[in-house]
Design a protein around this nucleic acid. Structure first.
Lengths: 339, 339
DNA sequence: ATGAAAGCGCTAACAC
DNA sequence: GTGTTAGCGCTTTCAT
């Protein structure tokens, strides 16, 4: 491995000049510049990034904390974050917290050891006061999450609006007995989602939602179970907001196996617009979040924070979602074409 | 940010002693050790990883090159690699090549700049001669891929066996007209898969496979299209090896829409045992690869390479897959229970 | 058992 | 325009 010194010697110049060429600084004559470039090429010289990091006090790496990589929504989010980061010259270290407070802290320590320039959190396990203390060491940006009173940039979807949107849609289609599925996560966003959902129901004087509330359902299997429970209620709902596409698919699959027609006997709405929604028949009506825009904003904000070295700034970057109207909640004759 | 110097001063000792404590070296009296630990705690000292990397010539980071993160198989692989790496104290940098030779090289450069200690490739875009040159800078391990004549560790599945297994299964169930779907990737593994598949057919004197070959199909949508083509052939196949679970799901979905019964009118076999296989009805017979074991082996081998500093060693770590017998290829009365 | 000092590879004052 | 030099924070001989 050749160093900047080797290049300097070969070119008959000083390390400084080589460094200047390396970093595109002004005040280097074209003549010497060429000399340096030739020497670099000849030696196959590449700057050592550890030395650069040490000297410059920055690494060009961002850590992304994520509960579980293989969850379709998260893998999509990572994919987009990676693309945006890459286009800005940053590398991404991926850290799975597995919903553990301890692991979350362990990874936040990357900030203390200066192994990364910043941390993007896509979920939060610890209390805010715990997270807050890490802000002394570098920037933290929340992506896909919001915390009341947190003095950092937060990029998130207005889930109250999402919940409202779904309820409104089902009400408009004549439903009055509407079930709600929660994935059991107790985040700010989840609370907002159910609030928005309920407020739409209350507007038209429906108060039955408590009877039709299912908690801690997130997988296909959970969805199947939801249907089984729902099917044997004395008064069963005619529509269900599954809270996730996998759950929606599970409900539909089990319902059809039991001879129910979708959406005539049961309308179903999912969340996240994953590929699975287009796979089942009928296709699943679902909430589309602007994941691409959120990923971009998160990276942009992070770069700006790193640059500004000002970490404790309250910033809300709110996005809103749309509904993709598909067959699982809409009769074919009413169906509006969607992508 | 406090440094090792600060700790030394506060403890009234030298940097050397602090460093010894930090690295669990012998020859430090318990008394001084305690002194140092107290000082570290008091200052909230954390060692700077850039300085350590520079001094030790290693980073504790491994790069994983992957074509596309959100592909279910790859996100599962990353998840497992991350867990194994994490348990060995390594961080993972995730790099999306997006099937581009150029990006692949750009990321292989992380090895040259010493930003990572090693690279795990889950696919290979460039010619081997190109990749080979990077071995001068650090270890490369192939995970989920095999290249003839590559002098590095390769962790892969014997796909000839997988293909054979699938064909054998379908033959045993009486099929003689069996279609084959390829995802269009021209890797060693894909060639082996089709070879194994064909050899099983040849054993029983079936030579019709060329008529029933579909190339470049990988998505649900592609699968739907395969069915449409297949349905209007003069002699249509009675079974199809979809080559991927998404394709299998697409075929089944479209077939059922057209009134075909699965598996009576068409038997379907997928690949990878993704969640989607359990979602459709009937559930999809599929090939299960030992992804967990492969991830573990890849990380183990990588750590060993990093340690040994001997990068050009030919190593085959071959794994074999199993078939999960499910409803898409097996009548209920013959169905063997599988997980 | 402990410390002094050199040096990993790079950049940026500062001098000329 | 170009070079000299100090130093980023750490580990490790080599003395003692």
């Amino acid at each position: 491995m050749s160093t900047i010194e080797d290049v300097a010697k070969l070119a008959g110049l000083s390390r400084t000049t080589v460094s200047r060429v390396l970093n595109d600084h002004p005040y280097v004559s074209d003549e010497k510049k060429e000399l340096v470039q030739k020497a670099m090429e000849q030696l196959g010289y590449v700057p050592n990034s550890a030395a650069r990091s040490l000297r410059n006090q920055k690494t060009g790496i961002i850590a992304v904390l994520i509960p579980k990589i293989s969850t379709p929504f998260f893998s999509q989010l990572i994919e987009l974050l990676e693309m945006k980061a890459s286009s800005k010259g940053y590398q991404l270290i991926i850290c799975q917290t597995q919903f553990s407070k301890q692991k979350e802290c362990r990874y936040l320590n990357l900030l203390k050891t200066k192994q990364v320039d910043g941390v993007i959190m896509t979920a939060v396990e610890n209390d805010w006061s715990v997270i807050d203390s890490y802000l002394n060491y570098g920037p933290i940006v929340l992506c896909n999450e919001k915390i009341e009173n947190a003095n950092i940039p937060m990029v998130y979807v207005n889930q109250a609006q999402s919940g409202y949107l779904v309820a409104k849609h089902l009400i408009e289609r004549g439903h009055t007995h509407i079930a709600y599925c929660s994935n059991g996560v107790k985040s700010e966003g989840m609370r907002a989602r159910i609030k928005g959902f309920q407020s739409a129901l209350q507007e038209v004087n429906i108060h039955s939602y408590e009877k039709f509330y299912f908690d801690k359902v997130s997988s296909v299997e959970d969805g199947k179970q939801v249907f089984r429970k729902l099917a044997c209620m004395k008064v069963s709902p005619t529509a269900v907001f599954a809270g996730g596409d996998a759950v929606a698919a599970g409900i539909i699959s089990e319902a059809q196996k039991a001879g129910w027609r979708i959406p005539e006997d049961l309308a179903v709405v999912g969340y996240d617009n994953m590929e699975i929604t287009k796979l089942v028949d009928p296709m699943i009506t679902t909430v589309i979040q602007p994941v691409d825009a959120m990923a971009e904003k998160s990276i942009d904000v992070m770069c700006e924070k790193i640059h500004r070295k000002q970490f404790r700034t309250f910033e809300n970057h709110e996005f809103i979602s749309k509904l993709a109207y598909r067959g699982s909640s809409t009769n074919r004759d009413h169906l509006v074409a969607t992508s």
